[in-house]
């Protein structure tokens, strides 16, 4: 590994450490609030918290959008080419996602241990919800798989964040407005419409894909990784010749 690559990764990991700790802290507070909430709703109510993986995925999406350009700019100031700067984003995101996911599993395991004596208190995460069951206490092996599942989901979101960031960097002001409108329309109407069309036109394909994803967590992880790689590749195509400019000050 070159000096510049190492320096860039170190810089990013230091940044992820601070923001990741804030994310973790917020989740701890929410879990504590859920436990307190359980006492307030009493024996007849149910309290659950299942949002760690989802919040971590949103966190990585935002990181992809916000920090990627900063890193490319910083690297440009520090005598590092676009290629190294871009490549350094990927291992940093992988390491950060792994650490955040692992910390999340420790937190979930602790929360599930607390919830054992309380039948109306549920703690779980996306992997547990989809593949193990809402009220299942995960085994150590399942926690590891769940951590990897969250890592892959976070990376898929990060890849999409990178794509958005570099697309907007490349576009002119008018292009940004048009892309923003088109993206909004795509998510509001296009994507649901496309999904409906696929289900209607190719019911077998949609069913097979859904079955493939639900069959095993590993399958969906593979899908997430493909999304990550595809968006990362497109992002590289966008950023490889971009004009890197700072701001006046």
């Amino acid at each position: 590994m070159t000096t510049t690559m190492r320096a860039s990764i170190q810089y990013q990991l230091r940044d992820y450490r601070t923001s990741g700790l804030i994310l973790f802290g917020v989740n701890v507070i929410l879990i504590l609030l859920a436990i307190l909430g359980m006492f307030s709703v009493g024996i007849n109510g149910e309290v659950s918290y299942t949002a760690y993986g989802f919040s971590a995925a949103i966190f990585m999406l935002v990181c992809g959008i916000v920090t990627a350009r900063q890193v490319i700019r910083l690297c440009a100031q520090m005598g590092t080419g676009r290629k190294t700067a871009f490549l350094s984003l990927l291992p940093s995101a992988v390491l950060a996602s792994l650490a955040i996911a692992a910390a999340g599993e420790v937190l979930m395991a602790a929360a599930q241990a607390v919830s054992i004596g309380y039948p109306n208190l549920y703690f779980n995460d996306l992997y547990g919800l989809i593949y193990a069951g809402f009220d299942t206490t995960l085994s150590v092996g399942q926690h590891i798989t769940s951590a990897l599942f969250n890592t892959c989901l976070m990376l898929a979101c990060y890849g999409f964040g990178l794509f958005c960031s570099f697309l907007y960097w490349k576009l002119s002001k008018i292009g940004c407005v048009i892309a923003g409108i088109l993206m909004g329309l795509f998510f509001l109407g296009g994507l649901p419409g496309l999904s409906r069309m696929i289900v209607v036109q190719y019911p077998n394909l949609a069913e097979d894909f859904a079955a493939f994803c639900l069959q095993s967590g590993w399958n969906l992880m593979a899908v997430f990784l493909v999304i990550f790689l595809v968006f990362s590749f497109i992002s590289w195509l966008l950023v490889r010749n971009v004009n890197i400019r700072g701001w006046h000050k």
Binding site: R73, L74, G79, T80, T84, G246, W247, H248, K249
Partner: peptide, 16 residues
């Protein structure tokens, strides 16, 4: 990176 590492530009713009 090897060639770029030999240069340092102190410019008007902030890249930090």
């Amino acid at each position: 990176d090897e060639a770029l590492g030999k240069l340092f530009l102190v410019g008007e713009q902030n890249f930090f």
